[in-house]
Design a binder for these strands. Structure first.
Ligand SMILES: [Mn+2]
Ligand SMILES: [Mn+2]
Ligand SMILES: [Zn+2]
Ligand SMILES: [Zn+2]
Lengths: 133, 133
DNA sequence: CTCCTATTAGTAACCATTATCATTATTAAC
DNA sequence: GTTAATAATGATAATGGTTACTAATAGGAG
């Protein structure tokens, strides 16, 4: 394992912010100023194949990465873009229902939420007062 | 409503293949050979804002569009990339659970499945015989 | 018809991600 | 430790889906 890969993994494990490749690049650059963005992408790809990291291909946005490889879902804030964990199991019968309804053999599934984080929700209520303070 | 927009919407409503912008462009081009790809993108964007079409920003792939605006989920075949409908409701208590677990006010959610369509599943079983003929 | 505004076709720009490749680091063998 | 084989790196170019720009066109109100 190279110094670059180790640094990327350590930075990834040291945050719960689900950074993008570019953000991780900036983080690692503080330690290894000569690392290149391509190296970050390459190693994130390798580590997500090896199960050391999770590649979050959340719909309609750049990829983000997660050092927490336990299965869990995510919410994205519609205000600030932050992605937070949703520690929640997807009911088995939901997957079974999808298999039955579609005729596919289901191999995996993702549950993605959009919403408003506490900070953005507060700002929003303050601004329009429309949704039951 | 321009001829271009009408043609795009009609083509979209005439298929359940969830075409990409480029695929739709090829379809519409048979009727309006001088239409441009930019026009297709622009009108799909407008129509999805107006609720006439659905923009599917499926994780890690190009956008696809859906003329069926009723809420439903999708499966993507890991073999051929086809996207099929999964007529299924997302249980309310799942959303409530996510709100509680994350602290976000949930505004929407997507359930995406990956799997093997009947055709690709058959080919796959034929090739390796590993998963219960 | 004439003016006005919206829309179009064509093309350039954008930006996240991948590919390429000469150089450099790591590993294994001696 | 030296050497040879192999793998990874940094720098940069290429890719591909999407958006932005702009001059030309279409079409509706008066
Ligand atoms: Mn996470
Ligand atoms: Mn559909
Ligand atoms: Zn927020
Ligand atoms: Zn298939």
């Amino acid at each position: 394992m190279t110094a670059q890969r180790r640094a990327i993994l350590e930075e990834l494990r040291g945050t719960d912010a689900h950074p993008s490749a570019t953000e991780l690049y900036e983080m690692v650059r503080r330690r290894l100023p000569r690392i290149s963005l391509g190296t970050v992408y390459r190693n994130l790809e390798i580590m997500s194949e090896e199960g050391l990291a999770l590649k979050l291909e959340h719909a309609g946005a750049e990829c983000r990465f997660d050092g927490n490889v336990a299965p869990h879902s995510h919410v994205r804030c519609l205000g600030c873009g932050r992605i937070s964990d949703v520690p929640m199991d997807i009911p088995r019968e939901l997957v079974a229902g999808a298999a039955k309804a579609s005729g596919y053999r289901i191999a995996g599934c993702r549950l993605e939420f959009d919403g408003w984080c506490r900070k953005c929700g507060r700002k929003r209520r303050g601004r329009c007062g429309a949704d039951g303070a």
